Simulated scan of single mutants.
Amino acid sequence: MAVTIKDVAKKAGVSPSTVSRVLSNHPRISAETSRRVREIMEELGYHPNIMAKSLVSRTTNSICIMLPKSAEELFSNFFFMELIRGIVTQANRQGFDVLLSSGANEKDEVEGVARLLNGHRVDGVILLYSRTDDPVVDFLYQNNHKFVLIGRSEQYADILSVDTDNVQASYDATKHLISLGHQRIGFVSGPPELVVSKDRLQGYLQALSNAGLESKPEWIVEGEFLQESGYRAISFFMNLPDRPTAIVLVDDVISFGVLRGLHELNYKVPDDLCLVSFNNIPLAEMSTPPLSSVDIGIYNMGYTASQMLIQAIQHKDNDKVTARYVIPHRLVVRESSIFSVPKA
């Protein structure tokens, strides 16, 4: 016979309504009472009827993570895995389940989140990316759905978002190379439709301009957040007659492709070329040589986005929620950029 909420209440010495409040993470229930009730649930093997609970509370206690279109980019880039880890950790602590959604194109993405939200299968959405003129953001915003954007929106200033100051972070990375005496500094960007690519390019250009240095169009290469983009970019750079002596790369995974290409061309880092990258994933420290990289607090970014969304769903302290939360960044200098201008 299935264990009921009354069975849990009787064993815990509380009322059934108290058990219900524990299940809904009611703020008036003490931590001790919540702990005791949840221990009894586990002991008795009680599992709440999610569908019934959803009908009563009008919530599902589930959120959706909208993934980027490219599965290759998602599963080969530690950035997204670390973001998801932060989101899931916070969601689980709040008693929320997490669903993943993706689409082959923007139309599929909009239809996917519409089905989940209009079908009351999730209470809100976290977008792992920020694009210019994004129809998914338009749909969520115009229909007053709960959502949080990882990144900066160019469309709406009042949406909930979590980001780092990518302009300043890129400025700092470029300024570091300038301080080593570099005057010819290249830049490997991400897809141009992503706001993060535009912001990091802007910071790079501002640093060069403030230092009175030239920026040549051939020193800026666009690509995807994949190793192959870095591999192709470095082949192009090293064949320029007036090649850069240092490069700022928009993502660590791209840097690994650059390192592979330089090794095949018999160039050494930092002797022949200095590198500074972004995201400071664990592999950056273990690469050969270890990569200088801007730490943007990826896990904290995901954790904070999840926290903001669940707070919005539960209508807790909405007046105290900052619309745009900026995670501090720091440049971690390692062997790939510790020397002055390499030999030409």
Rank of each mutant, 00 (worst) to 15 (best):
C64V: 13
S229G: 06
N92R: 15
L55S: 04
Q311Y: 04
F78M: 13
L240G: 07
A169W: 02
N92P: 08
L208Q: 03
V56L: 14
H120M: 12
Q314G: 09
H329F: 12
I220H: 08
V167C: 11
Y156G: 01
M51P: 06
L55M: 15
K343W: 04
M238L: 12
E224Q: 10
L149A: 01
N318P: 06
H176R: 13
Q202H: 10
L177I: 09
I327H: 06
L55C: 11
L117Y: 01
P217S: 13
I29F: 06
G112R: 07
I150W: 06
Y141L: 10
E264K: 08
M301C: 09
Y129C: 01
F236M: 12
L259K: 01
L205E: 10
V250P: 00
G223E: 00
M1L: 14
V258G: 01
R184H: 12
G112W: 00
T288N: 11
G212A: 07
L208K: 03
Y141S: 05
S197K: 01
L83F: 10
I150S: 03
S57L: 15
Y204A: 06
N105D: 15
S293H: 01
V98F: 10
S24Q: 06
E335Y: 04
M81W: 05
T164Q: 11
D163V: 09
M1Q: 13
L160E: 03
V8R: 04
